[in-house]
Simulated scan of single mutants.
Amino acid sequence: MKGLVTLFVIILIYSSSQAQKADWQVIVLGMAQDAGYPQAGCKKSCCEAYWTGENPKQHATCLALLNNQSKEAWLFEATPDIKAQWHALDTLGYQVAGIFLTHAHIGHYAGLIHLGREVMGTNNIPVYVMPKMKNFLEANGPWSQLVSLNNIALKELKNEEAIMLNGMAKVTPILVPHRDEYSETVGYHIAGPNQTILFIPDINKWETWNKNLASEISQVNYALLDAAFFADGELPGRDMSKIPHPFTTETMELLKGLPTKEKSKVHFIHFNHTNPALFDSPERNQVLKKGFNVVNEGMVIDL
């Protein structure tokens, strides 16, 4: 039952929201790192708090772009938690019209397996990918079977070239540096008629990007940014320089000079199970006191 709590919250929050919904919205269907929360094999207090009933399950990071006129939804990421995330959309009355992938790490594409003949056996679900990601899926099983059996239809994207959805929403991939063992990595600009989101769930340190983070934030209304780890030393016994994500503390330090309005655009996402800011804690309070925000499952953004 505990594993379903956040799913019910998503449905309750969205179903009871404003009677007149915006034509386009984004809903957060997950905020945890690839493996979700709790994580397999973790015997630390962070995950024990789930098994003892103290903390609820958190699904792997996923967004859904919703069109409230056509009742279509586009997933951003095909996570290992896709069953619950797809079911949430079904329950809310939306049909999945496509999936946008960021890269080939397990929390971001492994859920595609549920589209195959052993599970849903879908018919040509559009899956939007960059060139290397496309080649990876076409050349490696079991993913290649999804292509050959027409369970999915790969749609190749180009860096910083937008595609239009239903003539009103615009999605633009943006290359970011990351551990690109199998594919390149992108974030996305997601733009509706009135507002824009920057979604970067995975990136190496900000200084390795060829763009200025503050400048990118200034061009959007919301920035959902990688917060895998809170600070150095979070994984005792491991060299965290070999897991190159920006620490939450580093991002806040980098952006500390921004005006309050600009800071408030930042919503941290993609929390590792060890990141104490995943739940109510002094660390999360520190984020909020500094003027930044944390996403929650069920959070809805009007576009």
Rank of each mutant, 00 (worst) to 15 (best):
V147R: 03
F268L: 11
A223E: 09
Y128F: 14
E262D: 06
Y222T: 05
L165P: 04
K261E: 02
F230A: 02
Y188S: 11
I163Q: 03
Q219Y: 06
K261F: 00
F229G: 01
E253S: 14
K263I: 07
L157S: 02
Y222K: 15
T196L: 10
K263N: 04
M240T: 03
E250S: 15
N194P: 02
F199C: 06
V171F: 06
K134H: 03
A139T: 05
D239T: 04
T249H: 05
G187V: 08
L235N: 07
L154Y: 01
A214M: 10
L225P: 00
E207I: 13
I203D: 04
I243K: 15
S218A: 15
P177D: 06
V176W: 11
N135V: 03
P201F: 08
M168T: 04
H245G: 07
R238Y: 08
Y128K: 12
P244Q: 09
S144M: 14
E138F: 00
K155T: 00
W143Y: 10
R238L: 09
L258K: 13
L224P: 01
E184Y: 04
M168N: 06
G233P: 07
N212A: 13
F268Q: 07
N166Y: 07
S148Q: 14
T185I: 08
A228L: 05
M252L: 04
K134I: 00
A214Q: 12
I243G: 01
N194T: 11
S183M: 06
L225K: 13
I200N: 13
E216T: 06
T260K: 15
R179F: 03
L137R: 07
G237Q: 13
L154E: 01
N221P: 03
T251V: 13
R179N: 05
F268T: 03
E160T: 11
R238P: 00
T185W: 09
S215L: 14
D202A: 15
L154I: 01
Q145T: 07
K205Y: 08
I163W: 02
S215G: 11
L137D: 01
F229L: 15
I152H: 01
L165V: 05
I203Q: 13
Q195E: 10
G141T: 07
L165M: 09
W209C: 12
L137P: 03
I217V: 10
G257S: 13
V220H: 12
E160D: 08
V186E: 07
T172H: 11
E216C: 11
M168G: 04
K155Q: 09
L225C: 05
V129C: 08
A139W: 07
P173Y: 10
E138V: 04
V266Y: 06
A231C: 10
E253M: 13
Y182G: 01
N194A: 10
N150D: 08
T260W: 09
Q195L: 09
P142L: 11
E250I: 08
R179K: 11
K205P: 00
V266R: 10
Q219N: 08
L213F: 10
I200G: 12
E207D: 08
K211C: 00
N221T: 06
A228D: 04
G141Q: 07
K263C: 03
Q145M: 14
